[in-house]
Amino acid sequence: MLHILNKPPHSEAAAQMLSTVAEGDGILLIEDAVQALLHADWQGWDAAADVSVCVLKEDAASRGLSGAALNSQAILVDMEGFVELTEQHTKILSWY
């Protein structure tokens, strides 16, 4: 399951997403969700075992968070990477 979040990391949508993330899931942060880069202690970084957190590079850059992205544990993906992620997961759930 790939969870796509576009709301800020401390939004209700984010909390709801985190309550359903299972071991082995992926999380992709887009739009406002990239603000998670400013919160190293965000629960989502360690949501469950074996969960990789990706951040859409373009959205981080446009919000002035490229530097923060380099210093984080996030995996940066571009639009092509976004498409690849959606192909890797059989199920996709958007949290908006």
Binding site: T20, K91, L93, S94
Partner: peptide, 17 residues
């Protein structure tokens, strides 16, 4: 219980928000 949610979402083939 809240800790049943990940498994609940996992076991359904179609999940919509």
């Amino acid at each position: 219980a809240d800790d049943t949610l990940p498994e609940l979402v996992q076991r359904h083939s179609y999940v919509m928000n």
